[in-house]
Amino acid sequence: MKTWPMWIAGTIALAAVFHILTVFGLPYGIMNRAMAGISAQAGGVNKAIYPDRPSAEARGIVRPSPDLLYTACVYDVSKQPVKLTSPVPDTYWSLSTFAANTDNFFVVNDRQVKGGNIEIILAASDNAATPKGIPVVVAPSARGIVLFRSLVTSEESVVEIDALRRQANCEPL
C-alpha cells in the first residue's frame, strides 16, 4: 500500500498547527521581549524608565513617534496592585496600558483628567484591596506594559515636558 498520501496529509496538518501556534504566539513573544527590555532597564517590574526622545538610534519599540516623550514600565499585578501616578502637562498626554497579548485595555488623555495629576490603580481583580477614591482598572493579564505619552509641541518646550514626564511613576501598593 502506498503511504505517501498519508505522509503529505500529515505534513499539511502539522504545518497548519505550526501556523496557528505562530500566529497566536507572536504577540505574546514580542510583548515578552519588550517587557524584558523595559524591566531590565528599569531594574525590575513596576518601575519606570524615561527613554531619550526617539531618534534613529532608538531600537526598543518599533515605529516610535519622534514627536513624543515616552515613559514606560512593566506592570506586574500578580502579587499586589500597582499605582500609576503622573502630573498632566498642558499638551497632549496619555496614559495607556497594554496586556500581554498587545491589547490596549485602558487609555486616558489629558483632556479626560480633572486637575493637574492622575492616580490610577491597576489590579488583578475588582476584589483587590485598594485605597478609596483612586480609580481601579482591572488588568486582563498579570503582566503588561504601561506607557505614558507626552507631545513635544516645540523644541523650546522639550525641557519643561521632559521634567514633567520624569515625575510619572509605577509602584506596587
Binding site: 497566536f24 507572536l26 504577540p27 514580542i30 515605529r63 498587545t102 490596549n104 487609555v107
Partner: peptide
C-alpha cells in the same frame, strides 16, 4: 480587544503599543 489573531500579530511586529482608534 476585538482584534483578530492576525491583526494582533501584525501590530506586535510593526506597531507594538499602538493605541485603539478612539484615541
Amino acid at each position: 480587544s476585538q482584534a483578530d489573531p492576525y491583526t494582533r500579530a501584525r501590530v506586535a511586529i510593526g506597531g507594538l503599543l499602538a493605541l485603539n482608534r478612539s484615541e
